[in-house]
Design a protein around this nucleic acid. Structure first.
Ligand SMILES: NC(=O)c1ccc[n+]([C@@H]2O[C@H](COP(=O)([O-])OP(=O)(O)OC[C@H]3O[C@@H](n4cnc5c(N)ncnc54)[C@H](O)[C@@H]3O)[C@@H](O)[C@H]2O)c1
Ligand SMILES: NC(=O)c1ccc[n+]([C@@H]2O[C@H](COP(=O)([O-])OP(=O)(O)OC[C@H]3O[C@@H](n4cnc5c(N)ncnc54)[C@H](O)[C@@H]3O)[C@@H](O)[C@H]2O)c1
Lengths: 216, 216
DNA sequence: CGGACCATGTGTGCATTTTCACAAGCGCGA
DNA sequence: TCGCGCTTGTGAAAATGCACACATGGTCCG
């Protein structure tokens, strides 16, 4: 139940594997809700529409968590995945852009059971600064970004401004020392080496659905 | 400028290709803003950090849109991509779950230049029904889903309820005739053959970022 | 009108990801 | 204690995705 084999060798872990680990975590949570304490990779795959070999291979990058002939202990495996994903400590984040999406995210405390903590929401519009959000935070001046990141030990930046501001904000975030950024603006942001910008473009998803509608 | 070679042969188009077409569309929009009317795949790749061969191959599934020795006409190519993605007609969608995220999405009219139209927002909570949203729609009773889908010719369903309700809502949507569903609840929804459920789990993205933070 | 030039469209090979299939290992019951 | 049954962990194969490189076929200029 303690440490997992930290991935130290030179082979990089694929993004796809990491994303699936998140999915497995949700599966564990669901199983615990159902009172299931032990499960085989096959039963897991059947229940959640996954592939059993892929589950085993994904986990094998980080250690041997199962018992042959038996399967996995759900509670233990959940804890291992939590450690692998780095969810065993608080992650502080700020949101830049206190519009519709920014405030919705701010209010949403349910991220992974409270490990992600919104410690600031910033905007450049003077008429919005000082506004309270439903979550109890006040909107602060985006010009104070660097200062806030340092003082509140922020690790993650979230961009919910219009696309036109996204590039410059990501640069300011990188300058302030943030290493990972989640960008909701529909634009491909360029980032320096060592800074990871993950863009989530909801428009792309809707357009994929539109494609499926037109192509039977 | 009329029709593109409709993909009718047996080879399926990859999801990754479709997602990239959306990206190309945004690139075209940006180029037109800049007043650029013609561009080669190489110049496009350089400017937006893409691969020129991949651009050509993605487009080649649907026809020959370029001119050898010259490149692509930006305006024309944009129109072709619009047709390929089925964005040349209005797509009506309803949102089920009038909470934080649901209302934020409802208010967001900027989807692909207005081709996606929110024609209803539903909730099961009696105290929310009748509430106005910033966009001018009133929240309606989720029990009327089937009726609303038929009357308003809805094609796309969006789920922004808690995870516990997502499965049953997606089934009701499928029953009402919807063929594609965008699900924001953090749960893997099972769907019948012929119904496409695309889940966008924001928690997964944050957890990916957390992984990168812990693994240098 | 012809040839030099240039970027597309595509055949081919490489890389990554997924799936298969089985030897190795653990528990349990006799 | 031993063997049987079950599931893991893992090489090897299949499938998928990506990138190179060049023949093809237009443009344009002399
Ligand atoms: N609302 C949605 O449902 C939704 C859905 C998909 C994508 N998006 C994208 O998310 C982004 C935000 O959407 P929204 O609906 O919340 O928009 P919004 O207009 O409601 O909010 C944007 C906020 O950003 C602020 N802002 C602008 N420039 C800034 C800067 N330089 N520094 C700090 N703050 C700045 C504005 O003052 C405003 O408050 C957009 O890029 C949009 O395309 C939104
Ligand atoms: N708010 C966010 O920023 C955010 C971010 C990521 C993911 N999500 C996910 O999106 C979903 C919605 O989040 P939210 O913050 O808007 O939650 P919310 O609680 O504000 O809203 C949920 C709404 O769904 C309604 N509802 C519940 N059961 C229903 C049913 N059976 N039929 C119709 N309506 C029903 C509720 O009455 C409520 O109005 C959740 O699954 C959440 O995990 C939200």
């Amino acid at each position: 139940m303690t440490a997992y084999k930290r991935h130290i060798d030179n082979t990089a872990i694929s993004d796809l594997t990491v994303a699936r680990l998140s999915v497995y975590l949700r599966c564990m949570d669901r199983l615990l809700e159902l009172g299931i304490e032990t499960i085989s990779s096959q039963a897991l795959a059947d229940r959640f529409n996954l592939n059993s070999a892929q589950i085993r291979k994904d986990l094998a990058y980080f250690g041997e968590f199962g018992v042959r002939g038996v399967g996995y202990n759900v509670r233990e495996l959940r804890q291992y995945v939590v450690e692998i994903l780095g969810l065993d400590r608080e992650r502080r984040l700020i949101i830049v852009g206190a519009g519709n999406l920014g405030t919705a995210l701010c209010h949403y405390s349910g991220f992974s059971g409270g490990n992600f903590l919104v410690v600031g929401i910033l905007d450049s519009d003077p008429s919005r600064i000082g506004d309270p959000t439903p979550a109890g935070l006040l909107v602060e001046d985006a010009a104070r970004l660097g200062e806030i990141v340092t003082q509140r030990q922020v690790e993650i930046g979230v961009i919910t401004t219009p696309a036109s501001a996204a590039q410059s904000i990501s640069e300011k975030m990188a300058e302030a020392g943030l290493k990972v950024i989640l960008n909701f603006a529909p634009i491909r942001v360029r980032a320096d080496e060592g800074v990871l910008v993950k863009t989530v473009d909801l428009g792309v998803h809707l357009e994929e659905l539109s494609f499926h509608l037109t192509h039977v």
